[in-house]
């Protein structure tokens, strides 16, 4: 590891325990005149959304007013996600109702992008809806570096204390896609970004002023594209990361991870080309192909995965008008 990398890790890697004094964070936030919005993107999350809304609202809005606005932005759940979230006091929005003039696309990235328009905070914190051991640290651990360090614009979560372990160093502890796809790609093309322990974690907080300047893939590539685009614009110093200890969530099948990797690769190659790191790429296929075996017979399963992207929010007229107070 180079000394620069080590410096960055030492300076920009936190543990949520450093921010246990939430009242102090609230005071610092108010002193700087910052407002914070919390967004949970959902699609059929009735089993876990109730607890997330209950805990985060109660602890971070009622008990300690760290969060000023709390919204669930839904992609059209067919279960009781919206009813449960609303029951526990979240502001609930259908993604399709936001910025109707730009249409509706289906994907988590769409909800995150539309949150920039719908929510008012200077800082937006995104938390996935499928965390079964939700705790206030999932939010205060991410927004705290943004409150304390003006030069930091984007804070990623990582989990399970992967760096220092009682028995010594162990591997980085990312998920399967991180370890066999993202980390090798970063090592090849963006070595500094390998400092991000879990680049695909679904929990992050960022300043509005940077979020509104970058495009949002609506599907699997959104987390990767954020890192690549912000790195290109602002360099590694804009990032920080916080160890949030343990995260319990659904485990995805290998098939689902293959499809996810396919989407991420589309985003990645497009960025490589746009940033001049490779000269040209052929037109990329959008069909992900894999095999299934049933009764000894192989058959190919073909699924279309199109990584559409939304442009930077700043370019949307409706958003410009909103910001201008029109």
């Amino acid at each position: 590891m180079t000394s620069n990398n080590q410096d960055w890790l030492d300076k920009n890697t936190f543990h949520h325990g450093e921010f246990w004094d939430i009242l102090k964070l609230v005071e610092e936030k108010e002193k700087k005149g910052l407002s914070i919005s919390l967004c949970i993107p959902t699609l059929n999350e009735e089993k876990t959304i109730g607890k997330e809304v209950l805990i985060l609202r109660s602890e971070l809005m009622e008990r300690y007013p760290l969060v000023d606005e709390f919204a669930v932005i839904d992609s059209g759940s067919s279960d009781k996600t919206l009813e449960v979230a609303s029951n526990f006091g979240a502001d609930v929005y259908l993604s399709s109702d936001i910025l109707q003039e730009v249409g509706d696309k289906r994907g988590k990235g769409e909800n995150l992008w539309k949150a920039i328009h719908q929510l008012k905070g200077d800082i937006i914190c995104y938390v996935d809806a499928d965390i079964s051991n939700i705790h206030p640290r999932f939010v205060y651990g991410l927004v705290a570096p943004l409150i304390r360090r003006d030069e930091v614009s984007y804070v990623k979560a990582f989990y399970d204390r992967p760096l220092n372990y009682s028995s010594g160093l162990r591997s980085s502890g990312g998920g399967r896609v991180t370890e066999i796809l993202i980390r090798p790609l970063f090592s090849l093309f963006y070595p500094e970004l390998t400092n991000i322990v879990q680049p695909l974690s679904g929990e992050y907080a960022a300043r509005r002023e940077v979020l509104e300047t970058i495009p949002f893939p609506i599907g699997y590539g959104v987390e990767t594209s954020h890192l690549l685009d912000l790195y290109e614009k602002f360099g590694i110093e804009t990032f920080a990361q916080t160890d949030l200890d343990r995260r319990v969530h659904r485990n995805q099948t290998t098939n689902a991870l293959g499809k996810m990797s396919f989407g991420i690769l589309q985003t990645f190659f497009n960025r490589l080309h746009a940033q001049g790191k490779i000269d040209q790429i052929p037109s990329l296929e959008t069909f992900y192909r894999r095999f299934e075996v049933e009764d000894g017979a192989y058959s190919q399963i073909v699924q279309e995965v199109i990584e559409e992207e939304r442009p930077p929010m700043m370019e949307i007229e409706g958003y410009q008008n909103r910001k201008a107070g029109k």
Partner: peptide
């Protein structure tokens, strides 16, 4: 034991 609680309406 996995101490995870679920909250419904």
């Amino acid at each position: 034991t996995r101490h995870v609680l679920n909250v419904g309406s």
